[in-house]
Each structure stands twice: as C-alpha cells, then as structure tokens.
Design a protein around this nucleic acid. Structure first.
Lengths: 205, 205
DNA sequence: TGAAAATGCAAGTAATTGCTTGCTTGGCAC
DNA sequence: GTGCCAAGCAAGCAATTACTTGCATTTTCA
C-alpha cells in the first residue's frame, strides 16, 4: 500500500496513472470552486472524476491533501506578472493594456483556484497568503512601476498606489462579475482594457 | 408548538424573545460569513448565541430559514445608493467622494451578509441576484449619473460605464482586502476616496 | 505469459449534522 | 397562587461524510 501522492512519477510511463490523478484533481478543482471545500464531498469528487471513491484515497492521503495539491497552482504568480511589464512599449497606454491583459489572463486561467481561495480564506489559513499573493502583488508590481515613472518625471504627483489599486481592482471586479456571479454584463474584455487604460491616464474630465 | 419564525411579534411585549432571536441571527451571521453556510453548524450557532440548540429550531423552521432571514438585510440597497447621489455638490469631485463614502459604508455595514453571498453564490441560487444587487447597481447608478453629465456636455466622450466600474471596483477591492483577506494594507479610507476621485477625474498623466 | 501495480466493489466505522421529542424549569401576568 | 410561555436539558434518530479494509479484477509492462 503506497501513497503515490508523494512519489510523483516523473517518467513518461504512466499516462493512465496521471490521467486518473489529474481527473481527480480536476473534479475537485471544479467542485470546490463551486460548492466550497465542505460542499465538495469525496463522493462527488470521485463520481465526477469517474473513479471509485477508494481510488481517491489511494492517490491522496486525505481530503486536505487534494486541496493543498491544488493550491500549488498559484505559487508562481509574481514572476509572470513582472514579465507582463518586461517588454518595451511604445507608450504608457500600451504598457497598461498589456498589464491588464496579463493580470486578467492569470485570473481567468486559474479561476477555480482563486474561487476556492476566496471561499476558504477563513477555514484554511494557509490559503490566505497564497491568495493574497496574486491580487496584492498585482497592485504592488504596478505601483512600483508607476513610482519609477514618476521619479523620472514622467508622471505628476498623484498617489501611484491608489492608481495601481484602481486599475487592478477593475479587472478583478470584472473577473468576479463574469465568473462568480454570472452577471449578464456584456463586456468585451479587450475593450475594457483599452478604456480603463485610457481613463486611468487621462481621467474623465 | 408554534413557529415564531413567521408570526413576527409586532408588539413591544417581548424584549427577551427578540433578544434571543437576535442573538441567534447574529451568531449565524458571524459564523456563516466566516465558515460558510455548511461550516456554520446549528450546534456552533447555538453555542455562540449562548442558547440551547433546540431553541434555534424553536425560532426558525430550519437552517435555511436562518439564512433567508439574514438575506433580507440587503434588499433595500438601491435606494440608499441613489440617496448618496441626491444632494447638491459643489463640484464633481465632491460628488464622487460622497458616492464612494456611501458605497464603501454600505459594504462595511453589512460585511457579513456580503461575505455570505460571495461564498454561497453557487449553493443558494436565490442569493445571486440579491448579491449582485449591490455591486452592480452601484456601477449602474453611477454610470447613469455620469452619462447624464456627459449629455449635458460636462464630460468628454469616455465610456461612462467603464469609468463607473473602475471607481466602484476600487472600493470593493479595498473592502475585500480589509475584511476578507486580512491584508496588512494600511489605508486611510477617507484618503482613498479622495485620491481615487482625483485620479478618476484627472487621470495620472 | 506472468508478475506487479492500479482500479473496482462491498462493506463497514466512527464522527458529525440537521432536526425531533418529551419533560422540566423559571419568570411574568392576572 | 395559577396558568402560560420561553427556554433548558437529555436523549436520540436518520442521513451524510471522511476514511478503511479485504478481496476480486483489470491493466501494464517486461
């Protein structure tokens, strides 16, 4: 009796094995995002994964084992965000649009995990810092960039933190609206990126 | 055997009765916001309320009865938001600041209920529309106001919806950061209102 | 083909959870 | 005092849930 949970088969041997494990993870991800950790019973997970419930416990030590495995999927966020600011941009607006795209893309790409984090923030304390990692670093990273611009004299005296917060919030909100509460807010993302960047730069007055 | 759940004692007779009922509601509000609907067991609720578990079921038909009672607390939001835009303001900025104050105040005032709504959005479908009511009407109301200004020629051609979205998002995000994820983001709310209004109007360029 | 590993199946267990029942206790009004 | 009503207490019940065990079956791969 072993716990393949740990022994991470590196080789290409098992497509089947990994398939099963992946199916379980995928089912759990989906269910936990929808129903929360408690709502995603091991029974339901196994059913959705199309495997026997016992198999779930053969792959993972216990239920939290599944959750912690899932949480690993948000650990590498900061780098990706900073990469979104790496390239050379023709102007400030293009940089903002690109940053918006990157950030929003990250949110959507891992929407289930973020939902789980939101929902379970109080129940699984370790979640909190992981979760805060994306939204807050997103503000931080942009804030720093703006500050740099400011010091070069390219921007007036406005508070760069607030500016970054406003910008990032917008897409977080849009993300939540679209994927958590299914608001029939018809929006074209690319347009939102454009408009928001424009407004942040020029204001509405 | 009766269900005081329904028969809403109008008279002033019972301070005791209402006190108990209120204590139960308050405990449930707190626990559900923290642990979610499932996590808030009737046992825990009764303990936190300092009453016997049976008493809970004497006051409420069943557990969902408690939830639905709690949800009534967000039904009257739109009016309050519109009131926040009612008064006469010296300038546009003062209006925005006031709106921010109103909106953020509403969020904080009912933080538990909103948390519950976020968490339970998928499990209790009736929750969704109630929940969406605040965040989305907040955008709507402001959006309309901006549009009106625009038609009077007071604002340039920027998309008022995006502008409203940006503005509202900011405070929603700040609210989430402070009360859900306990980010050690030190912020003075009143300053945030000021700065965000300024930026929305003038831009950062 | 044959051994080993992965999965299925049947059954069960201890704990939790929502909710009920029957009875007692204590306070308030008349 | 008497009667009423809210609340406490003890006990329990049926369903669910995370998790286990033992064994049969299939799949994989050498």
């Amino acid at each position: 009796m072993d716990h393949p949970d740990i022994e991470q088969k590196l080789g290409g041997r098992g497509e089947e094995e990994q398939e099963t494990r992946e199916r379980i993870l995928s089912a759990a991800r989906q269910l936990m995002a929808q129903k929360g950790y408690k709502g995603a019973t091991t029974r339901k997970i196994s059913e959705l994964a199309g495997v026997n419930e016992v198999t779930v416990f053969r792959h993972f030590k216990n239920k939290v084992g599944i959750l912690t495995e899932l949480l690993k999927e948000i650990m590498d966020v900061r780098e990706q965000l900073e990469q979104g600011l790496q390239g050379e941009f023709s102007d400030l607006k293009q940089m903002l649009v690109s940053y918006a795209r990157t950030y929003y893309g990250l949110l959507v790409e891992r929407k289930e995990i973020f939902m789980i984090c939101m929902i379970e923030a109080d129940n699984h304390p370790e979640v909190v810092q992981m979760f805060s990692s994306l939204p807050m670093t997103a503000v931080e990273v942009l804030s720093n960039k703006l500050l740099a611009f400011q010091e070069q004299g390219h921007l007036p005296k406005v508070d760069p933190f607030t500016a970054a917060l406003m910008f990032v919030s917008t897409f977080f909100y849009a993300f939540m609206a679209k994927y958590r509460v299914n608001l029939d807010i018809e929006m074209v993302e690319e347009e939102l990126f454009e408009n928001a960047s424009e407004i942040l730069l020029q204001g509405i007055k």
